[in-house]
């Protein structure tokens, strides 16, 4: 089949002309998938397969990458407690950032959803605005705020009298968690926002008329309905936080390594590509397992209620 013919077929099926529906339905324009498929295979599948393969290669200080199949890198990760600690830190940071994003993002989305016309759009833009700025710029902003003992955050906290001396934010897990939670917040807000759109606007009035107070309405009526949104937002934030590179490398620095920054160092500083590949593959596998697992749990938990 020539390309032009398949394009015509696709146009017909997109806007079905009366009387021609059976024809276009019977011959789905599969060839149209080709460009996307080729791109996907070329830039995702092939590099991924190469990375997995790379993680089984050997590497020597003087020999470079040796194209043999060995479990050396995997054994090293398995036996060296340094890697345990690093992965534990990665997921701890991601988990805490997700928690903070949920605690702040869900109420934020709720308030936003109840705002009136001009303010709603304005504040939505403010919340989503950070997405328009590079992650590096946003993180450097946090570096300025945290920056050493004279950072703005410390100055403000000391001025209010919450703390006596400066808290170290830079190069600490706390700093990374705070910065990550902020960077990822829009994803959580958007996800909860989408869930809120499906909530019947009269439902709070219904609960009110049945005698429920504001707190009860929040806890018993609204929260259960937006929970799927919070959880799916949580999955997005967790995955992005666990694989984040810019924020941990700027706020965390060279010593506070997470999986992404470690893989980067192995590739570009130590030049031990196979070990870096093994770390990256392990991070990917762990994330896929966590996401697929929690998704399955969420779907089972809420399938009865939501479709």
């Amino acid at each position: 089949m020539s390309t032009s013919a398949s394009v015509t077929a696709a146009q017909e099926s997109a806007v079905p002309a009366p009387g021609k529906q059976e024809r276009s339905g019977a011959r789905a324009p599969w060839p149209l998938l080709l460009p996307a498929l080729i791109l996907f295979v070329a830039v995702v599948i092939v590099p991924l397969a190469m990375t997995v393969l790379l993680s089984f290669h050997n590497w020597g200080q003087y020999t470079g990458i040796e194209f043999v199949i060995t479990l050396k890198n995997w054994h090293e990760i398995w036996s060296d407690p340094y890697f345990y600690e690093m992965f534990a830190r990665t997921f701890r940071i991601a988990g805490l950032a997700t928690l903070i994003a949920a605690l702040f993002g869900a109420p934020e989305a709720y308030i936003l959803n109840r705002m009136r016309a001009p303010w709603k759009g304005f504040f939505l833009l403010i919340i989503l605005g950070p997405l328009l700025i590079s992650v590096v710029a946003r993180t450097l902003g946090w570096a300025l705020l945290f920056g050493g003992n004279s950072g703005l955050v410390n100055k403000a906290l000391m001025a209010v009298g919450v703390i006596d001396g400066p808290i170290p934010f830079m190069f600490t897990e706390a700093g990374v968690v705070i910065a990550l939670a902020h960077v990822m917040m829009p994803f959580m807000v958007l996800s909860v926002w989408a869930a809120l759109q499906r909530v019947d606007p009269q439902i709070e009035n219904a609960a009110l008329s049945l005698g429920a107070g504001q707190m009860t309405i929040m806890r018993r009526i609204i929260l259960p309905q937006i929970m799927p949104g919070v959880l799916s937002g949580g999955i997005i934030v967790f995955a992005l936080s666990a694989s984040a590179f810019a924020t941990p490398s700027i706020i965390g620095g060279r010593r506070l390594k997470v999986a992404a920054t470690l893989a980067y160092d192995e590739f570009l500083n130590t030049l031990n590509w196979p070990l870096g590949a093994a770390v990256a593959v392990l991070l990917l596998v762990a994330l896929v397992l966590i996401i697929v697992g929690s998704n399955a749990i969420i779907e089972r938990r809420y399938s009865e209620v939501f479709r």
Binding site: A206, I221, P224, Q225
Partner: peptide, 12 residues
């Protein structure tokens, strides 16, 4: 007691 146009039942 109020019955709403959309019923406003609690879906969960």
């Amino acid at each position: 007691g109020i019955v709403f146009q959309s019923y406003a039942l609690f879906p969960h």
